[in-house]
Design a protein around this nucleic acid. Structure first.
Lengths: 175, 175
DNA sequence: GCAATATAGTTTCTTGTGAAACCATTTGTC
DNA sequence: GACAAATGGTTTCACAAGAAACTATATTGC
């Protein structure tokens, strides 16, 4: 591994490398946000989300929550609100509202499960499928453009790293 | 619902393919969210943000916006709200509120600039410095734990990839 | 069979946020 | 100098989203 002039932290997330070494004052707690992973990741995700949301809203008049529900339905066809909560990490109230909106627009169908009346089985209506048939390629094209500057290897590594972080987050979280 | 079928597409974000089966059933538009970068990135960032926010709130009673202002102040010492908007990508109203809250708590000081009465120069108070001196190490320790499973190379590559995506986003955005 | 408890989903309440209106000051233009 | 435009920052308004209360159904223990 390259041993370079990486600053103190194991990975280099640290601060103050501008050489204002001994100006006489106490050691300022300093944090270089541009090297702070949570900050960078969050800002990037926010920007991406903003752009995509704008596209969804303009062209299809749906918000992110609704989009996620649709996408998962395209993937699994039969789902319940509870499951969607788990997959998407969204609050159940948020899912509930998204589902309601989609049903009102006739994009999904909802009926009480035969086995458990509390549960509602969800699936796409033909109209929903149609909308997805148009939206999905748009989303993929947009993503393709976004990652156009990454090599296939970089793209794969990125997903790998995200996977590792997610698992580590799990580990940290349960404590 | 393990989704491990790596599918085609330049980078792997994939979906329903051709196979246009003539009249009748249209090819299902399908999107594997777990391989869709915006979704993955957003979910990861959200989770990280949630965890960190909880820590900030519990231990220091500050929210993310306030934290960002403090961190930038630790870095630059003299700032204006406008600049913070630029650095953090936050709305100016949001910055305004964060600044106000921090001032109310005596963590930062704010005074009209000598040269331009519209502008307010911001800097940390001793109390603010003190809080940061305690908060920053916490944040860094937390980040270190988060990235503990990444090698130095993976960590560096991750930042590289994020940088590329940000720049590409810029390019896409201005259109 | 019937309380007590748990679960899926909805509704209510509160809060944080972005958009737009607004205020105060500065910078131009004549 | 005076009026118009621009700029930094605050406030108002509308709304999305999380927390908690609530409803309806299921499950468990007795």
């Amino acid at each position: 591994m390259e041993v370079d002039e990486r600053s103190s932290g194991e990975h280099g997330a640290s601060a103050g490398e501008e050489g204002d070494a001994g100006s006489g004052s106490l050691p300022r707690a300093e944090l270089d946000l541009s090297q702070f992973l949570p900050y960078r990741l969050n800002r990037l995700a926010d920007r991406i989300s903003d752009e995509l949301e704008r596209m969804y809203a303009e062209r299809y008049d749906i918000n992110v929550a609704q989009w996620r529900v649709l996408a998962w339905l395209s993937h699994c066809d039969e789902l319940t609100a509870k499951k969607i909560c788990g997959y998407t990490n969204m609050d159940k109230a948020r899912v509930s509202r998204a589902v309601q909106a989609l049903e009102d627009r006739g994009l999904i169908h909802r009926e009480p499960s035969v086995h458990d009346q509390r549960v509602h089985d969800l699936h796409l209506t033909p109209a929903g499928e149609e909308l997805l048939a148009s939206l999905v390629p748009d989303a993929q094209a947009w993503e393709a453009e976004l990652v156009a500057t990454l090599s296939v290897g970089e793209y794969r590594d990125l997903f790998n790293a995200m996977g590792k972080l997610e698992r580590q987050l799990e580990r940290i979280g349960r404590r």
